[in-house]
């Protein structure tokens, strides 16, 4: 399998804190790679550095054989990397359809006209199951649809690599199952997908490979089954839960 995305010693410091520390990973073409880790593990910072929203303090990002380290966000996007935001960021004064059309309008390689983009948007909306809400404003959507819209915007760009930042957080179990099906079908279409989740269950179900981040470092990497039984991973998670339980107990 060829490598689509590779990071080499990627590091991002905030003041004295290494939010991402010396992370080297590879994402193979047409695979689904899951990133997990407790809050503050550096997952979102990692995405921000890869997509150009933050400049790395050290290290390299290589996409499809090209060094894209420190490139501006729009350049990374037009190279074929699209992302969602953990806190959905729709364009609130545009319709759902227009929101999605914007992805097609400026996405990689395509210089699509406004009219053509709106047609593209309808296809994508169909795919994620949002067709009925095409003329709604994002503010009128329930949370699950907001997440779908976020995904639709990213898909409309026709990316080669899709970075999904917690698109399943806050969803009901049935909705999570829908998302898992959608990710699998996108993979079948040839997309490469990085899934970041706080919740382990969904990740283990959908990923070919799981990477565990802990305190900014790569703690473990492997197939889902191995990761699920890895002692260090369990400790990292249990440690957090344990601390949480103690804190909650103290407050009550």
């Amino acid at each position: 399998m060829t490598t689509l995305l590779e990071t080499d010693g990627l590091t991002r410091r905030f003041g004295g804190l290494d939010a991402v520390s010396d992370v080297s990973v590879t994402v193979e073409q047409n695979s689904v790679v899951g990133f997990i880790g407790p809050n503050g593990a550096g997952k979102t910072t990692f995405i921000n550095v890869v997509t150009g929203f933050l400049k790395p303090s050290a290290g390299r990002v290589v996409f499809d054989g090209n060094d894209v380290t420190g490139n501006r966000p729009w350049d990374v996007a037009r190279a074929g990397v699209s992302r969602t935001f953990q806190i959905a960021k729709p364009f609130r004064d545009l319709t759902v359809r227009e929101n999605v059309a914007l992805g097609s309008m400026f996405g990689p390689g395509n210089s699509r006209s406004v009219a053509a983009s709106l047609t593209d948007a309808d296809e994508v909306l169909e795919r994620v199951g949002l067709s009925e809400r095409a003329e709604a404003r994002p503010g009128e959507l329930p949370i699950a649809d907001t997440k779908r819209l976020e995904l639709a915007k990213a898909l409309a760009m026709k990316p080669r690599l899709l970075l999904l930042d917690e698109v399943m957080a806050g969803l009901r179990p049935a909705e999570i199952d829908n998302s898992i099906d959608l990710i699998r079908s996108l993979q079948k279409d040839g997309l490469t997908i990085v899934v970041i989740e706080h919740v382990m269950k969904a990740i283990l179900a959908v990923s070919d490979k799981v990477i565990v981040l802990h305190e900014g470092k790569r703690l473990a990497e492997g197939p889902p089954k191995e990761i699920a039984s890895d002692d260090r991973v369990i400790e990292a998670y249990l440690g957090e839960r344990y601390a949480k339980r103690v804190k909650e107990g103290g407050d009550a």
Binding site: T51, F53, R72, P73, W74, A77, R78, S82, R83, F85, K89, P90, F91, L102, G103, M105, F106, G107, P108, K153, A154, M157
Partner: peptide
């Protein structure tokens, strides 16, 4: 940010 993520310079 969202605009930049969609490829808008």
């Amino acid at each position: 940010d969202s605009a930049a993520a969609l490829g808008i310079n």
